[in-house]
Design a binder for these strands. Structure first.
Length: 289
DNA sequence: CACTTGACCTGTCCGC
DNA sequence: TGCGGACAGGTCAAGT
């Protein structure tokens, strides 16, 4: 899924749905998805209550009353879906009844609360993970130490943004945007969308991008991700929010997965190419090498 | 260090 | 309707 706007949407949903609930069970069906020992789970998770749900980059952190935190990465196909069978929460949305369908084949971890509700971690491709670690140790994780700044923070300026890229001067701008140690949270969808907005070809070398172009790109990254948060994220394939509902940003996408359709700016046909090993969507007229 | 590529998985879609 | 291959929202560990 999940880039910054999707993870932010899940986090906001979980904050509405699971705060103060008490964990009574934890079922793990894949040691890679949830590698903690049974001892740790029983000691620091069972019986605890949910205190807060936070996000950093594409990672969700669920703080427990035991001073332990569930650190979760959804990678490509992860989902965190809350279902309350007692109140039928999660039922009745289009094409799906979560009440009946979850847990399903892709469910890796089921966290049960003492009121009968459940939080499911589903992950078709098994790339994602859930780790239970001391809250104070979260900032010591390799990922947390290396990850770049949050682009939507109010005090994150255009100058800040540009300065982060100097280290990656000899690679292309798309690879640099996707590099989580440069800027946190940008993935394949929003990289393509913001490069189109700034009229920058994704294969251009970072070192050749002008200050003016960086300024545009900075504004586009923020505008595109803010719009997506407002739309509940992008459902390209699997993504759903904490209530099991899809996001609608794809209805507003300008280039992503729109190959063969006209560019909204100049009507030139959008094409799909490969850059930084990823499928990449551009307007060949607006975005020149 | 900076940079690129392949690996990790399952499912789906497309061409034969 | 089967089969092989490419591809899918993301990181990592290796290689150069």
């Amino acid at each position: 899924m999940p880039e910054l706007p999707e993870v932010e949407t899940v986090k906001n949903g979980l904050n509405r749905l699971i705060i103060d609930r008490k964990i009574s069970t934890a079922v793990n069906d894949n040691p890679k998805s949830f590698p903690n020992s049974i001892y740790d789970v029983e000691q620091f998770m069972i019986g605890s209550t949910i205190k807060d749900v936070r996000r950093r980059a594409k990672v969700i952190m669920i703080d427990l009353s035991t001073e332990y935190t569930l650190v979760i990465h959804l990678k490509m196909t992860g989902q965190l879906v809350f279902v309350d069978k007692a109140t039928r929460f999660g039922a009745g949305h289009p094409n799906d009844s979560l009440i009946d369908s979850l847990p399903d084949k892709s469910t890796r971890v089921t966290i049960g609360f003492d009121d009968g509700s459940d939080l499911y971690f589903n992950d078709q491709r098994k790339f994602g993970w859930v780790k239970l670690i001391p809250t104070l140790a979260v900032s010591d994780m390799d990922f947390m130490k290396k990850v770049g700044p949050e682009p939507l923070e109010p005090d994150f300026t255009s100058e800040h943004f540009m300065a982060r890229f100097t280290r990656r001067a000899r690679t292309n701008i798309k690879a640099a945007l996707l590099d989580q140690t440069v800027i946190a949270g940008v993935g394949n969808i929003y990289a393509d969308e913001s490069l189109w907005g700034a009229k920058i070809h994704p294969s251009r070398l970072v070192g050749d991008i002008t200050t003016g172009e960086f300024d545009k790109l900075y504004n586009e990254v923020r505008a595109v991700m803010n719009l997506s948060i407002e739309k509940g994220g992008s459902t390209n394939r699997n993504y759903v929010n904490a209530e099991g509902k899809k996001g609608s940003y794809m209805d507003f996408a300008r280039v992503f997965r729109r190959e063969g359709l006209p560019c909204p700016r100049c009507q030139t046909e959008i094409i799909k190419i490969k850059v930084a090993g990823r499928g990449t969507h551009i307007c060949p007229h607006c975005q020149q090498i």
